[in-house]
Computed example of a mutant assay.
Amino acid sequence: MNAWMTWAVLAGVVVILELFSGTFYLLMISIGMIAGALFACIGFSASMQLIVAAVVGTFATIALHFSKYGWKGNVNAAQDPNVNMDIGQFVEVPQWNEHGDGNYTARVSYRGAMWDVELHHGNGESGKYVIQEVQGSKLIVR
Results as ranks from 00 to 15, higher is better:
A3L: 11
T6P: 00
W7S: 06
V9R: 08
V9L: 15
V9S: 09
L10K: 06
A11L: 10
G12K: 14
V14H: 12
E18M: 04
E18P: 07
E18K: 09
S21L: 08
G22P: 14
G22K: 15
T23L: 10
F24G: 08
F24E: 05
L26P: 04
L27R: 06
G32W: 06
M33G: 13
M33D: 02
G36D: 10
G36H: 07
A37R: 13
F39D: 01
C41A: 08
G43M: 13
G43T: 15
F44K: 02
S45K: 11
S45C: 02
A46N: 15
Q49P: 00
Q49E: 15
I51E: 00
V52W: 03
V52P: 06
A53E: 09
V55M: 06
V55N: 05
T58H: 01
T58F: 14
F59V: 15
A60P: 02
T61L: 10
I62R: 01
A63V: 15
A63Q: 01
S67E: 12
G70V: 09
W71E: 05
W71M: 13
G73W: 10
N74H: 14
V75M: 05
A78S: 13
I87S: 08
Q89K: 15
V93F: 03
V93E: 07
V93K: 09
N97E: 13
E98K: 01
E98D: 15
G100N: 09
G100S: 12
G102D: 12
Y104N: 04
A106T: 03
A106M: 02
V108A: 06
W115Q: 10
W115F: 12
D116S: 13
E118N: 07
L119C: 06
H120K: 14
N123D: 09
G124F: 09
E125Y: 02
K128L: 13
Y129H: 01
Q132F: 10
E133I: 00
V134N: 01
S137F: 03
L139A: 07
